[in-house]
Design a protein around this nucleic acid. Structure first.
Length: 474
RNA sequence: GCCCCCAUCGUCCAGCGGCCCAGGACAUCGCCCUUUCAAGGCGGAAACACGGGUUCGAAUCCCGUUGGGGGUGCCA
């Protein structure tokens, strides 16, 4: 095999909204290519549109990338700080006769082209010889004939008839560059070898190829790779406005970054042997752009949750405990820091760990221990305690056992088994009223271990409170 | 409208001419395990959009149709 050139890739998001999972996947694939080829991953913020860009969004992008472990070797570069470069390129295009100034308003163009067979700008200013001065936009002179070919790693050769490409604007009349110009200037300047981005950019790629042809000084085009878009349940491109897809949201919900990375990698790609659980290193070692498939993928939260569950269960318990903290009383937490008994949580952690798919579900499982006023679920209480004929008897028996000194899980279990045996019912059946009365919910952590952790005092208190409510009912 | 892309179970992938009356995973259904719920184990249902070619042979190659998507901005 021949020596591959060292890849220089870039991830170039625009800071115009929450950083979403589609962008994260694009970044990840870029990162894999850079790491695998021992090249560089460049981060470039495309904020040429001053109207829509916001530094706050940039912050979000950086923090989400860091959270995912996608590190960059260069940048972040900001296009807003590189305006002189774009202006110089525009000047060269104009001076070389590859572009011309245009003063047409959008309305004027529309009025003229309404009845034209060919849509888009009609080349009205091509030969008017307007000066390239403030107030005039600059349009690239697209050849009338011929074809422009985009050679794409995932899609093959894509051909465009030049006649279908309009004379597009490269500099706005206010002096701001357009994305397509800035991208070409930057990719050239940053020596980018491989452009990996979403499919929505494919239709503008021939424009970039054309620009590269005149600005590139003969340097070879970058290798393009257009990834299929991520879609919602209606099969439309994920939208920041329509769909909940912000990486931040998933973080707050308790998804692990390594699970997210693993899941994202598999959206449009799979390793040769079909394995689904891949470490970061395995991903880097096996990822190939050539194997990325071409059709859009649906971001399936259920499947993500499954992956997340696997990752959570694979965590050493101590680390699981560590990662739970923010969800107990930290940034995303539900409880008062003072009401959380760390040692108790740590003891219960193994039981919690195998029952959650996200860290956000953790507080719910230990709420019986840490939630300030204890209030059992009303529906569950009605069903398991109030409407169960023998509930009162069961609760009394348990209370008596605890008073006699039954404190650990084994004692408590023995006590309940006694009731089960004497009434000929299954243990699962008789534990229901006890569970709801003391833990507050019909489902949750194993009963006896939970009671042991709750402690004699609180268990008795809750059992008595439940018995009192039964008495009230008559 | 015009340009471009795409098309295997509900979903994500495997399949790159014979190993496929199509395989794995999620979801779903059933059973087992079980102190609830999970987790885990076992099993079931579930797809090559359609029509033409090419070929001894097509999920795989070609053409068309249909369907979906993206672009069409002095957004990125």
């Amino acid at each position: 095999m021949t020596e591959l050139p060292v890849p220089r890739v870039r991830f170039a998001p625009s800071p115009t909204g929450y950083f979403h999972v589609g962008g994260a996947r694009t970044a990840l694939y870029n990162w894999c290519v850079a790491r695998r080829g021992e090249g560089q991953f460049i981060l470039r913020i495309e904020d040429t549109d001053r109207e829509r860009s916001d530094a706050a969004w940039t912050e979000g992008i950086l923090s989400a990338l860091s959270w995912l472990g996608i590190t960059w070797d260069e940048g972040p570069y900001f296009q807003s700080e590189r305006r002189a470069l774009y202006a110089a390129a525009a000047e060269r295009l104009y001076a070389g006769g590859h572009a011309y100034a245009c003063d047409c308003t959008r309305e004027a163009v529309e009025a003229r082209t309404k009845n034209n067979a060919v849509p888009g700008y009609d080349g009205f200013c091509r030969d008017r010889g307007l000066a390239f001065v403030p107030g005039h936009a600059l349009r690239f002179k697209v050849p009338d004939e011929g074809t422009t070919v985009v050679s794409d790693l995932v899609r093959g050769e894509v051909e465009f008839q030049n006649s279908t490409i309009e004379d597009f604007v490269v500099m706005k009349s206010n002096g701001d560059p357009l994305y397509v110009l800035a991208v070409v200037v930057d990719d050239l300047d940053m020596q980018v070898t491989t452009v990996i981005r979403a499919e929505e950019h494919l239709p503008t790629t021939p424009k970039a190829v054309l620009l590269w042809g005149v600005l590139g000084e003969g340097r070879p085009l970058p290798q393009y790779a257009h990834l299929p878009v991520l879609v919602n349940e209606r099969r439309q491109k994920l939208s920041k406005r329509r769909d909940r897809v912000a990486v931040e949201d998933y973080r707050a919900l308790g998804y692990l970054p390594e699970a997210m990375v693993n899941y994202l990698a598999l959206l449009g790609w799979a390793p040769a042997d079909g394995r689904e659980i891949l470490s970061r290193d395995e991903l880097v070692a096996e990822f190939r752009l050539e194997d990325v498939n071409r059709s859009p993928a649906f971001f399936d939260e259920k499947r993500l949750a499954h992956f997340n569950g696997l990752y959570i269960r694979a965590l050493p318990t101590a680390e699981f405990v560590e990662r739970c903290r923010p969800f107990l009383y930290g940034a995303h937490g539900l409880f008062e820091p003072t009401s959380v008994d760390e040692a108790a949580f740590a003891r219960l952690a193994p039981l919690v760990q195998e029952r959650v798919a996200t860290l956000g579900e953790v507080p719910g499982l230990v709420a019986f221990l840490f939630a300030a006023p204890f209030s059992p679920d009303a529906v569950a209480f009605e069903k398991a305690v109030l409407r169960d004929e023998s509930a009162g008897e069961t609760l009394e028996h348990m209370a008596a056992a605890v008073e006699r000194g039954a404190l650990d899980a084994a004692d408590l279990r023995a006590a309940l088994e006694q009731i089960a045996a004497s009434t000929g019912r299954k243990l699962g059946k008789v534990q229901a009223p006890v569970r709801v009365a003391t833990l507050g919910a019909a489902a949750g952590l194993p009963l006896f271990e939970s009671l042991e952790e709750l402690g004699r005092e609180r268990v008795l208190e809750r059992l008595r409170a439940a018995m009192a409510r039964i008495d009230e009912r008559g």
